[in-house]
């Protein structure tokens, strides 16, 4: 069997499972934060959360496929292990970056909303 195809066969399912797992964790545990941001409007929050989940799948799986498209030619087993490690590391680091960015957005948004509420109450006669 062509070693490139073997690499894709190992790489794609594993990375897909990882991306889907991370997205579902964000979907589940981001919900309480979103409820805080949208004044406990749970119908709106669920709709928004589902759309964001689909967007997360699309972008992550698309990036995984693009990494596969630019794979170098693999001739030996050593090369197979080396390129697999490199590309898995890239995907994991990108997922980590996106994850922390998500957390940062939620925290900052909550922070500013909280500040605005305090200011609003202070300026009321």
């Amino acid at each position: 069997m062509n070693l490139n195809l073997l690499a894709y066969l190992l790489f794609f399912p594993a990375m897909m499972a990882l991306a889907v797992g991370v997205a579902q964790t964000c979907h589940r545990h981001g919900r309480p934060w979103m409820l805080g941001l949208f004044d406990n409007n749970d119908v709106l929050v669920d709709a928004l959360n589902n759309i964001l989940l689909v967007g997360c799948y699309l972008v992550n799986l698309g990036y995984i496929a693009l990494v596969m498209a630019a794979w170098e030619n693999v001739i030996t087993i050593e090369q197979l292990v080396g390129t697999l490690g490199q590309h898995i590391a890239t995907i994991v680091l990108v997922l980590a970056g996106l994850h922390y960015q998500n957390i940062a957005v939620l925290l900052l948004w909550s922070h500013f909303k909280h500040r605005a509420r305090i200011d609003h109450h202070q300026h009321q006669p």
């Binding site: 062509n2 195809l5 972008v59 698309g62 990036y63 693009l66 596969m68 498209a69 630019a70």
Partner: peptide, 23 residues
């Protein structure tokens, strides 16, 4: 088959990211 997989990955991956941006 390797060429087919790589071409498809490039096209479908690019399309998925484009679709994510449209979403």
């Amino acid at each position: 088959n390797q060429e087919v997989v790589e071409t498809l990955a490039g096209k479908i991956g690019g399309f998925a990211i484009y679709l994510g941006i449209m979403l």
